[in-house]
Design a protein around this nucleic acid. Structure first.
Lengths: 108, 108
DNA sequence: TTCTTATTTCGCAAAAATACGAAATATATT
DNA sequence: AATATATTTCGTATTTTTGCGAAATAAGAA
């Protein structure tokens, strides 16, 4: 029998995903990658009002959180969503937001 | 006609919600409040392995993000979810995670 | 090989997040 | 009025995040 942990791996994992989505630029990137297609850093840099080095850091963070992955297509790098982890994130966020038994009750 | 903004209010709002969920303790709190019931700071403090002052800061952040609200029930404070904003968050996260037209395709 | 392009890493600075214990606050209870 | 309880705010230290420009890297093109 496992010890009853208060903060579970799922809490940690969800927090990690949420933190990665905790900046408008990164939300923008994930939105783009989840709806449209893969993309290059340069395409994003052309649109976004930040330095390329700053964008690179955001991409690095999304990669560290496991939400995206890059494949070299010299001299560019093509970024795509990491489908496995995106699915995991979808599941975890879905769980969090789905259950709501008090939806029609006032706080008592 | 509005100017075509790259980073929209929705991106900002979703990032704000995500950032608030970007810590395991805060995920735990929101999970509790969304599934079970309202709760008191003290109940959380008894369970969580952090100082009460630290917990208070996390609650403050969730409140600042609009995800929870507190009502005085002296000498305690009862914390509840902010249903209106939770709904908004559900919607924004739902939008982000729903659309996925490339679900069966490899990155090309 | 040299040049060009795309992107990252480095070095730095400023701001924000995280955590704690001590002190302050607010309000019931005695 | 004094005490007890629940929670927050304050002060502080440490770590992390965010951002930039300059320099470094990688690989195709001339």
């Amino acid at each position: 029998m496992l010890p009853e942990e208060i903060l579970t791996n799922d809490h940690e994992q969800l927090a990690r995903f949420a933190k990665a989505l905790g900046h408008p630029v990164r939300v923008y990137i994930m939105e783009l990658l989840s709806t449209q297609t893969c993309c290059f850093s340069g395409d994003l840099a052309d649109d976004l009002p930040i330095a390329r080095s700053t964008l690179s850091q955001h991409l690095k963070e999304l990669k560290a959180a496991g939400l995206i992955q890059g494949t070299i297509e010299a001299p560019k790098i093509r970024y795509c969503i990491n489908r496995e982890n995106w699915k995991k994130a979808t599941l975890l966020f879905g769980q969090l937001f789905k259950a709501n038994p008090l939806v029609n009750e006032e706080c008592k």
